[in-house]
Design a protein around this nucleic acid. Structure first.
Lengths: 212, 212
DNA sequence: TCACGCTATTGAGCATTGCTCAGTAGGTGC
DNA sequence: GCACCTACTGAGCAATGCTCAATAGCGTGA
């Protein structure tokens, strides 16, 4: 697991294939490291991301990682943040469609996204935190982004965080998330409905909750 | 932070006030340590619970903690598990009441519980995991316990995990949880409703979701 | 093409912390 | 009072987060 000698293993990256240092721009290196973090997030909770492992994967020294990210926390806040942005990006609906179609599409994408990388997503939602204040914030920001988007699609331009409609939509997203996680955790043949039915259900739920 | 010398500090516990070892029964010691874990959970995420800190708080050596809990994970799974049991115990309704009253009471207690120790609860829900498989299971078991209880109160004795009604109730609990966390996060004067109204809303939501 | 400077990069080393283990000592039964 | 059981200690190891002085790619100007 140490990166210093690494005798038998093949070079992990484009790094140091000829034994010489490879010098990247600061930006490229940061991107590479965050990318590795995202990849490793798939198989392990964020807190078990060891700086050693990341550095080894990138083929660099531990010290360099601390050059870019002063603390481990800085690093994984960055990684979590990238994960959140990716979720928002992936589920962004096509603005050319009518609003209700956008909502459908967004939810379908969300279900597909969670299903495809379920463990990773759970790591994001829960492991996210680990109770860590900073990472909780990243998750909260992502959720808030989704909430705002849904409110827009509902033509409810409410912005105050404490407004009932916003709180309802926010909590409804928790409902959708839980349902999706549970649903995608079932083996395919045991799922009581298709993704489309699932999405239909959540949309119906949204309208029902809204009119309470 | 070391517990070995500890010159100026007052004795932290009933331990070693006279410099002599204090020998507890295995059961008492375990209870004490889990209790300390629960207490510390209030102020810090579970993963940052250091064995050193717990041992110091208990006035014992690090070694002893490992005598009772082979790994750190064993320890905090135990702590989380105790937290889950406490939640279930506290929110257990009075079986003498009619079913809908039991549900009300349970939800009111839940809201009060979360409001009172919000950080601790968030640590449990999210930090819970940290993505750690074992701790996720503890949380899942707690949630499953609540779900079963609600199903009973609804006179829906469904037990298959994949049944639609069970999944709905499970996800509804996520809805309730999110709403409660957000609600209790607002300063008291900014809350858009009383606890009773909040509970009424969630009950209405349950019935609406159920009949979709 | 070559020296120069900026900074990306290294690697030794420190402190903390999870964990092990051989040995010590408090309490209980005979 | 002796002996046994086991709660308990503390030294020490390995892994890991983090620091820092030194090194060496790579772009730039002459």
């Amino acid at each position: 697991m140490l990166n210093s000698v690494n005798p038998g293993k093949p070079p992990r990256d484009s790094e140091a294939v000829d034994g010489r240092r490879r010098r990247l721009t600061a930006e490229d290196r940061r991107k590479q490291l965050v990318g590795i973090g995202l990849m490793m997030l798939r198989t392990q909770p964020i807190h078990e991301l060891s700086i050693d492992a990341v550095a080894a994967e990138a083929g660099i020294s531990r010290g360099l990682l601390f050059h870019y990210f002063p603390t481990k926390r800085d690093f994984y806040v960055e990684v979590m943040s990238a994960a959140g942005r990716r979720l928002l990006r992936v589920t962004k609906p096509d603005p050319a469609l009518p609003a209700d179609e956008q909502l459908r599409q967004m939810l379908l994408t969300f279900v597909a996204f969670v299903t495809r990388r379920r463990d990773s997503y759970i790591s994001f939602v829960r492991g996210a935190a680990g109770g860590d204040v900073f990472v909780v914030e990243v998750y909260a920001a992502t959720r808030a982004g989704l909430t705002t988007r849904v409110l827009d699609l509902l033509a409810e331009p409410t912005q105050e965080p404490a407004s009932p409609i916003r709180m309802t939509v926010h909590a409804w997203l928790a409902y959708v998330e839980d349902l999706t996680i549970e649903w995608s955790g079932l083996p395919e043949h045991a799922r009581p409905s298709s993704p489309d039915d699932l999405v239909d259900h959540t949309i119906a739920a949204l309208h029902a909750l809204r009119s309470l």
